[in-house]
Amino acid sequence: MNKVHLLIEDQIAFITIDVPPVNALNEEVLHQLSKALDDISNSEIDVVIISGAGKKAFVAGADIREFPTLNKDTGEALCRRGQSVFTKIEGFPQPVIAAIDGFTLGGGLELALACDFRIASKSSTFGLPEVKLGILPGYGGTQRLARLIGIGKAKQIIYSGEFFTAEEAFKFGLIEEITDESPLEKAKEWAEKIKQRGPLAVEFAKKAINIGIDLPLEEGLEWEARFFGELCETADKNEGVTAFLEKRQPKFLKR
């Protein structure tokens, strides 16, 4: 039975995690999520949207039933499996949007952090409660959260394990937008905007940001200039500039 559903509509890939009642991540879910990404890696899509089925949870963490028998070796292996899937999301060529509705805890929050940006409903709840279980966030949470919102706030959240609201998450920069509408519908609106832009330009912009964020500014600027130069050799650049000068909408090449 599939626990991760993939639907492609008009160059947008919708990945839905469907594991009642709270869409918990287990080894099979991670495997299916990874496979869904592989299945669309060479397809003609412009944006990926990840969501959880229902309104109760985006993803409410890992499946704790897998934890009692963990030891040093199996625990490390578990982390590396989850990390590899989330790193695949972070490095995916096309933008990946998290459409968040409900509990987004532990591994669920780590999944959201691996996406390019996050849109959440007002009723969503966030947290990294792993320390309450005597462990730490192991799917990238200790690394991505600090990079996104700053080391002090990340430590406060991780050390306490406390939950926080969507309003708080927005205030300190963990999510980019709160919506009264369906987060999935709002994510689709952003996806439609991104679809109208040059697909190679968006892909290279993502690469430039992801590579440069951990480098000194001078090295990041080198990558930016290099990617800009590569784009100057593309048909998309010629079409985009020509369309601007002719005062019309560009017709970019599809992948």
Rank of each mutant, 00 (worst) to 15 (best):
G106C: 15
G127F: 02
T125I: 15
G141C: 14
L111T: 10
A146H: 05
G106T: 12
G140N: 00
T125D: 12
C115S: 09
F126T: 00
I135S: 08
G107K: 10
A120I: 02
P129Q: 03
G108Q: 01
C115F: 04
Q143K: 12
C115T: 14
V131P: 11
Y139D: 03
T125G: 15
L109A: 11
E110I: 01
A120S: 15
L109G: 01
V131Q: 11
D116P: 02
G127A: 09
F117H: 08
A120H: 08
I135F: 09
L136M: 13
D116S: 02
I119N: 00
S124K: 14
L109C: 02
K122N: 13
I119E: 08
R147F: 06
T142D: 10
L133E: 07
L109I: 05
K122Y: 14
G108A: 07
P129F: 02
C115R: 04
P129H: 07
K132V: 10
T125V: 15
G134D: 13
A112L: 08
L145M: 11
G141S: 14
K122A: 14
L109D: 08
T142G: 11
R147L: 04
R144T: 00
S124C: 11
V131L: 09
L111W: 03
A120R: 02
L136V: 14
S124H: 14
A146K: 06
Y139G: 01
F126P: 01
A114S: 15
F117S: 08
E130C: 09
R147H: 06
Q143H: 08
G134W: 11
R147W: 05
R144V: 00
G107C: 12
S123Y: 14
E110A: 01
L109E: 12
K132H: 15
G127C: 06
P137L: 10
G108R: 01
R118L: 03
E130Y: 10
R144Y: 00
G107W: 04
L136W: 10
T142I: 13
G140A: 01
G141D: 07
L109H: 03
L113P: 07
Y139T: 07
S123G: 15
L109W: 06
P129D: 04
R118W: 04
S124M: 12
C115Y: 02
R147P: 00
L133D: 07
L145Q: 09
G106H: 14
R147V: 00
G106D: 09
